Structures are given as structure tokens and as C-alpha cells.
Simulated scan of single mutants.
Amino acid sequence: MRSVFETFIEKVHGFTSLSTTDALAVEEPLEIQLGYGPRGDRNVKSIAVTMRTPGYDFELAVGFLVTEGVIHDAADIEQLGYAQERTWERPQEPEDRGAALPYQPRRNIVRVELAPDVALSLAHINRNFYTTSSCGICGKASLLALQSVCPPRISNQFSISAEVLYSLPSRLREAQAIFNSTGGLHGVGLFNAQGELIAMHEDVGRHNAVDKLIGAEFLQDHVPLRDTILLLSGRASFELLQKALMGGISMVAAVGAPSSLAVQVARQFDIALVGFLRDDHFNIYHGLEHVSGCTSSRKEKLI
């Protein structure tokens, strides 16, 4: 598969080495281009380049545009496919998403053609999107910017039991086929309250994995993803909480730690947030009422 690369290595155990092979997760750049404007005066703009694991490239591009507030409905997209410079290539059949093909540079550029009537804020795009961890603006500005583009929220009624919550990491791991081969990919899973896996994606970048998942659900007209929980195989950053918010997700759980700004997003927009989800423990950073089956062992709540 194009998402996995076999290489020769020396495996050392103690002081003895053995020549063998190892499977690595492929990492390649993906450029996302945007086509926009009236029918007779179309423009093309390169809006982002991300390092990703090939496969589900169209979903990744669409998910990026959704979570950055550029598009809001599947009808905003008129055409979707691979492009190289000025040569337009129509998308392949649905089963061919570039995941099992030999390396082809032309498959490292995806162009999303917007419908002619879609209004586009070039000022927003020219800011290079505020949602990168190294954007250099303060947390307050990030939250204000997010508030201006996030879709309408309804009351969060999602609830999940602690017992089901504990079972999610192993269910996600079982579904990670490429991780099981390489050990080098982030995985994200979308679950319902009963712990059933709705969707799963992998990538060398955790933000790319989330974009692939949300993009795929968006193209199936499943967004907003209310009454679902997003499980992250790593940590929870501001960027990932922002993507969950834009996808309408009710709860985020991470195997690793959340950042301070991620917690602020969860509290401001009422997204239940769990971190350090392991075999027998987890931390609730927001939304205790959304997790059933927990018995408090202290009488007073700290302020």
C-alpha cells in the first residue's frame, strides 16, 4: 500500500544485531488548492500544505475546509479531484482514494472547486488560518476568532457511561490496521454512546486524521455529528477541539493530556472533555454530568 513503506533495518537486541525489514508509515506533502469565483472568471488559490499519510486525500481536504469555516454544506463543492499545476484530473471511483497506489506526485495536490455562488472570505484565508499551534497569537484572540466562525450550538445532551468510555481505546486500536503494521500513526475514532465505532481514520498528523474523519462524514451529509464522542490516540490540543467544535461533536476523549487552551474551548462551547483515558483511570476536564457511573469520593467541590 502507498500508506506503508518497507525498508531494511538493523534490529539490535542487547548487543546483537539482526538484518531485517520494517514497515514505516508513509509521509508525503499534500497541497490543498481552492477554485472559486463566478463561472466565467474562476481563480485558483493554494491555501495549505500539510504532511500526511496518503489515502482519503479528498476527505482530508474537505475536512480541512469544513473545520476552518470555509465551507458549510456539501452543496458548496462543485468538483473535487487531483490536480498538477494547471492540469485538472477528475476524481477516481470511490474505492480509489489513493491509498493503494504507487507513488505519483500528481496525487499530492487536491483541488476543491467551489460552486460559483459560494461567498469566499479571502481575508480569512490570507491569515493562513488561525488554528495552528504555532500561530503566534494569544489564546484569547484564538477563542474570539473561533467564536466568529463556529456553527450554531444546541444544548449538549450527550451521555456515556464510564464503563463504555474505558472500552474505547482498545476498540480504536483494534481498528487501526496501518498502526498495527507500522506503529507510527495517530488514530481517531468516532463512537456513539453505546461504544459502537462509527468511523475511524489514521494519519501521521493527528489533525489530518480528524480532518479525514470529519470530511468523510461531511460528504455523507452526517455533519453536525451530535451525540458522538471523538477519541484521540494522543493529546488534545486547541486545534483538535476546534475541529470537533466545527464538526458539531459533543465529547472529546484523549489518551494523552489536553492543553490549557483546549480546556478553555471545551468549557466555553460546552464540549465534554476527557484526558489520560487509560485502562482504569481518566480525568474529566469539563462535563462531569455527561459521564455516568462515577461515584464522587469527596464531599466538597473545589473552586
Rank of each mutant, 00 (worst) to 15 (best):
S3D: 07
F5E: 14
E6M: 06
E10H: 12
V12E: 09
T16N: 07
S17C: 04
L18H: 13
L18F: 12
S19T: 12
T20H: 01
T20Q: 03
T20N: 02
A25T: 08
A25N: 09
V26M: 06
E27Q: 14
E28M: 05
L30E: 04
E31T: 12
E31L: 06
I32W: 01
Q33Y: 14
L34P: 04
G37H: 02
G37F: 01
P38K: 02
P38I: 01
D41L: 12
R42N: 01
R42P: 00
N43L: 11
T50D: 09
M51T: 11
R52W: 07
Y56E: 09
D57R: 07
D57H: 07
E59Y: 09
G63S: 03
V66H: 02
T67F: 02
V70E: 00
A75C: 03
I77C: 03
L80D: 05
Y82W: 13
A83M: 14
T87D: 10
E89Q: 10
A99G: 08
A99M: 06
R107I: 01
N108G: 07
N108V: 02
N108I: 02
N108T: 06
I109S: 09
V110C: 04
L114S: 01
A115H: 11
D117G: 00
S121L: 00
Y130F: 15
T131Q: 11
S133Y: 11
I137L: 14
A141Q: 14
L143M: 15
R153G: 07
R153W: 03
Q157D: 15
F158W: 03
S159G: 10
I160M: 09
V164A: 07
P169M: 04
L172H: 02
L172W: 00
E174H: 11
E174S: 09
E174L: 08
Q176L: 14
A177L: 10
A177H: 10
F179Y: 14
F179I: 03
N180C: 03
G184L: 15
L185W: 04
L185D: 02
G187K: 04
G189N: 06
G195L: 05
L197W: 08
L197H: 07
H201A: 11
E202W: 04
H207Q: 13
V210F: 07
G215R: 05
A216C: 06
D221I: 05
D221A: 13
H222S: 12
D227R: 14
D227V: 01
D227C: 06
I229K: 01
L230D: 11
L232Q: 10
L232C: 08
R235H: 13
L245G: 04
M246D: 03
G247E: 07
A254D: 02
V255Y: 05
P258W: 07
L261G: 03
L261Y: 06
R267K: 15
R267S: 15
F269H: 06
F269L: 06
D270W: 01
I271S: 02
A272Y: 07
R278C: 11
Y285G: 04
V291P: 13
S292M: 06
C294V: 15
S297K: 14
S297D: 12
K299L: 13
E300R: 13
I303R: 09
